[in-house]
Simulated assay, not measured.
Amino acid sequence: MSLNNGLFQLGIDLQRGSSNTQAEVQAEVIEFKAPHGEVTADSSSDERKDFFIVKDGEKYAGTHLIIELAGAKFLDSIEKIDAAMRECVEKAGATLLHIHLHHFTPNGGVSGVAVLSESHISIHTWPEADYAALDVFMCGDARPHECVEVLRAHFEPTDVVVDELRRGKGLV
């Protein structure tokens, strides 16, 4: 992959310029990494949706769901996967920045990611085994658990396994 193509996939088009300046991107990164005060997901005065969570007396960066679908259908369909990811974002109340999906041949598997303001959703499918591995990581007000039923509806799996991690627990 050429440098320009790789940068373009990251949202930086050297020929036309990026939609954000480097200073704007750095300011966004600094702003996210700098919340030193006690910030809770139920803060009505904070318009940001990517802040730390305080729940059950624990402060953490976000909820990370590891989701496995077995006996699933449509795992070779870029269109179906794209639609499922977009609906997950909507139902979770997250903010979509970009989706990138790659279709492998000859087995038809798909790998991809939806990059969110609140983090990401990633997927890797093995249609020949009717299996998909996903991870859904979201912070702030986003509701990652809403994605589980969306995935059930889109891929009709016979079995769903969900593991949950609270990322940054005890570290933030």
Results as ranks from 00 to 15, higher is better:
residue 131 Y to S: 12
residue 43 S to T: 11
residue 107 N to V: 01
residue 57 G to T: 00
residue 100 H to L: 10
residue 116 L to G: 01
residue 2 S to E: 10
residue 100 H to S: 12
residue 160 V to F: 07
residue 6 G to E: 08
residue 27 A to Q: 08
residue 11 G to R: 01
residue 81 I to C: 15
residue 87 E to M: 06
residue 135 D to R: 03
residue 48 R to F: 03
residue 168 G to I: 01
residue 140 G to S: 04
residue 8 F to L: 14
residue 93 G to S: 07
residue 96 L to C: 05
residue 48 R to G: 04
residue 21 T to S: 15
residue 99 I to W: 07
residue 24 E to P: 03
residue 98 H to Y: 12
residue 156 E to K: 12
residue 8 F to A: 13
residue 170 G to W: 03
residue 85 M to R: 01
residue 153 A to S: 15
residue 37 G to S: 10
residue 83 A to R: 10
residue 59 K to N: 06
residue 63 T to L: 11
residue 159 D to F: 12
residue 152 R to T: 06
residue 169 K to H: 09
residue 124 H to M: 10
residue 147 C to L: 02
residue 112 G to H: 04
residue 99 I to D: 09
residue 46 D to G: 01
residue 161 V to K: 07
residue 65 L to P: 08
residue 156 E to S: 13
residue 69 L to Q: 05
residue 157 P to L: 02
residue 133 A to P: 07
residue 34 A to P: 02
residue 24 E to D: 09
residue 42 D to M: 04
residue 79 E to G: 08
residue 148 V to T: 11
residue 129 A to R: 12
residue 12 I to T: 04
residue 169 K to G: 03
residue 64 H to F: 09
residue 75 L to N: 04
residue 41 A to K: 13
residue 26 Q to R: 02
residue 107 N to S: 08
residue 73 K to N: 14
residue 156 E to R: 12
residue 66 I to E: 15
residue 93 G to D: 05
residue 139 C to T: 08
residue 135 D to E: 11
residue 57 G to L: 00
residue 83 A to F: 07
residue 36 H to P: 10
residue 91 K to H: 09
residue 162 V to A: 04
residue 54 V to S: 10
residue 31 E to A: 13
residue 48 R to Y: 05
residue 121 I to A: 06
residue 101 L to C: 09
residue 74 F to Q: 13
residue 70 A to N: 13
residue 65 L to H: 06
residue 113 V to P: 09
residue 41 A to D: 15
residue 60 Y to K: 01
residue 37 G to A: 12
residue 154 H to A: 15
residue 119 S to T: 01
residue 128 E to V: 05
residue 35 P to S: 13
residue 106 P to V: 00
residue 146 E to A: 15
residue 14 L to P: 14
residue 149 E to Y: 03
residue 170 G to K: 02
residue 35 P to Y: 12
residue 19 S to P: 06
residue 19 S to I: 05
residue 43 S to A: 15
residue 87 E to Y: 03
residue 39 V to E: 15
residue 119 S to Y: 08
residue 28 E to M: 00
residue 128 E to K: 11
residue 135 D to A: 02
residue 31 E to N: 09
residue 98 H to I: 01
residue 33 K to N: 06
residue 130 D to P: 03
residue 119 S to G: 07
residue 13 D to Q: 07
residue 30 I to A: 08
residue 47 E to S: 10
residue 172 V to W: 11
residue 155 F to T: 02
residue 119 S to I: 00
residue 118 E to K: 02
residue 108 G to H: 00
residue 55 K to M: 09
residue 71 G to W: 05
residue 140 G to C: 03
residue 129 A to M: 11
residue 77 S to Y: 04
residue 96 L to W: 04
residue 127 P to Q: 01
residue 67 I to N: 05
residue 74 F to W: 04
residue 132 A to V: 02
residue 92 A to Y: 03
residue 112 G to Q: 07
residue 79 E to K: 08
residue 29 V to I: 11
residue 80 K to P: 05
residue 117 S to N: 13
residue 59 K to G: 11
residue 122 S to C: 10
residue 62 G to V: 00
residue 14 L to K: 11
residue 87 E to L: 07
residue 29 V to W: 06
residue 144 P to E: 00
residue 9 Q to K: 14
residue 35 P to T: 06
residue 139 C to W: 00
residue 100 H to V: 04
residue 160 V to N: 08
residue 167 R to H: 00
residue 30 I to D: 10
residue 100 H to M: 09
residue 12 I to N: 06
residue 168 G to A: 10
residue 45 S to P: 03
residue 54 V to I: 14
